[in-house]
Design a protein around this nucleic acid. Structure first.
Lengths: 249, 249
DNA sequence: CGGGATATTGAGTTAGTTCAACACAGGTGG
DNA sequence: CCACCTGTGTTGAACTAACTCAATATCCCG
């Protein structure tokens, strides 16, 4: 079914705000509003800063394609990657709600972003509450990711952290169709992974090496492969919920 | 598990959902809706579990008074406190959005919570989009807290972490009128602080001791005192944003 | 007054860090 | 086409911040 050509480059039917259509159909009016809500598209090159800590952007973004990451820095240069940004993620809400960004977002690959005007956000809520609800849903989902990361960084060992982040990326990647067999493209360096896990680069490397030698994962030329998914999952030390479910066998 | 709520005692004029009235007046209709939205009140005793990881509560809560904490656990007992819960916080949204709770919430003191029915959430969005907007605002604010914590746990040293969490608690406490002079009641143990900072109990204690001996803070009989706020702030190693702002003096 | 929970302290251990050197790949200009 | 350069990955060695274990002190509550 070919999409009719319009002014905007990407059809809003693909918009993540519409994502929940699995549960709820988006009405034609809603779709029309989404299209009007959209200001345009923004193509970010790898390495580009999309949002900067301390700035006040008038924009909201939706990621249509590509990878990026959200991070915060300390004055002396240390930085913590808060989470990786993938298609379907909603960016800049904090700027709208809190006025000023408290974190930065940088592109890892070329990214295509759908741009919204921040001041239209309110009209979205008032005119199309269902879409407002969806935004809350997205916010809630991203908070869940953060919770998981915090648990990892705060309480998991190095091996567990690496195992967990791989499992997590594959889980997100699968939902987005980014996984082929047991392989997924990961367009970041070990430094990025280290910054995401709150570890040093060297130790991240040594940990990865250990997992490679145990034939559990492989990370070559930009692709991570889960060689032994079972062992990997076991190492990942899942949260108490998962643990609760297991004993029921 | 929460006991069935009773009839409402607290006027909804004090509701955190109305908090943003500084910026925006709440209309009488909205207030009426809030009161209808409210199912009742829930009094939680210290140590009570308000929400449990893996469960599906039909409730949403707003904290009217008292302290609690949100946490996640690992199967072997390690646990990470995600953040402390104070009056004005909104709880359980994840359960509504994601169907199942991915974290637990426990009371530290007696807590008074305003209870909402989850299934009314949608009618709140559709009928009173401004309130829906407020919920998004709350979600966004709590995500900011999480970002800060993750930066702390991932990249700050032990002293910095302790300094930062104290500064942070005072900042939140001030907004809520919980700070008297330089003192604030903190109804938790060093174990809680350790779990929040991703550190061991012993090392947390030793770090606190160091800060006490340097006459920077004092923690006695349930009260933390900022003895030398300036030094404490300096130790806290604020984020890059704060650093950007300082040179402007 | 007793007992359990909390806090404090010392000693020994270790997971993770920093430093430093080297390997390797891709990309550029001569 | 090669020589070089820069970014990335790999590895060893030395160091240290934070951990665990364990004993003792202190507080709080009934």
């Amino acid at each position: 079914m070919p999409t009719p050509p319009r002014t905007a480059q990407t059809p809003c039917r693909a918009c993540p705000l519409k994502k929940r259509e699995v549960f709820r159909a988006v009405t034609p009016e809603e779709l029309a509003f989404i299209e009007e809500f959209k200001t345009g598209e923004f193509i970010a090159d790898p390495g580009a800063t999309i949002l900067a800590e301390g700035s006040k952007t008038p924009h909201l973004f939706t990621v249509l394609s590509g990878w990026g990451f959200r991070y915060k820095g300390l004055p002396d240069g240390r930085r913590q990657i808060l989470n990786f940004v993938l298609p379907g993620d909603f960016l800049g809400l904090q700027g709208a709600a809190l006025n000023e960004m408290q974190h930065s977002v940088e592109a890892l690959t070329t990214m295509v972003l759908c741009v919204f005007a921040r001041e239209k956000l309110w009209s979205l809520y008032s005119g199309y509450p269902s879409l407002g609800y969806d935004i809350t849903w997205l916010a809630s989902r991203s908070e869940r990711l953060l919770d998981d990361n915090l648990l990892s960084v705060g309480r998991r060992s190095a091996v567990e952290r690496v195992a967990y982040v791989v499992v997590d990326l594959f889980s997100r990647g699968r939902q987005l169709g980014l996984v082929t067999g047991q392989k997924m493209r990961v367009p970041f360096t070990q430094q990025h992974m280290a910054d995401a896990l709150g570890m040093s680069l060297v130790h991240t490397n040594k940990t990865l090496r250990k997992l490679t030698q145990s034939k559990i994962i492989k990370w070559q030329s930009g692709y991570i492969e889960m060689v032994d998914e079972k062992k990997l999952m076991a190492l990942a030390a899942h949260d108490a919920t998962a643990a609760q479910l297991r004993p029921l066998i």
